[in-house]
Amino acid sequence: MQLFPCPFCGPRPETEFHYGGEAGKVRPEPAEAVSETAWADYLHAQANPKGVSREVWVHLACGEFFVLSRHTVTHEILGAEAMPGREA
């Protein structure tokens, strides 16, 4: 069982968290101006890096979404930060 650091609550067991998505993905819009390829990329294309990955997770206990950096091979946790503009 991994320990994830919630920026608001501190280290907690991974079962208290849900994966939100890849961090830094920007929703393309307005819909009329978005190509099918760009939309498909947004929906389905994941970088899925072997190594350091930045991901959005939510801590279900406090309800806060945040950005987690972790290593996808070693499962090492490299850091966690509140969403931009949110104070931890």
Binding site: G20, V58, L60, F65
Partner: peptide, 14 residues
């Protein structure tokens, strides 16, 4: 609730 919360925090001024 979680979907509302996700968009609230990701797109709006919480």
């Amino acid at each position: 609730r979680l979907r509302l919360e996700e968009w609230r925090q990701d797109r709006f001024d919480p």
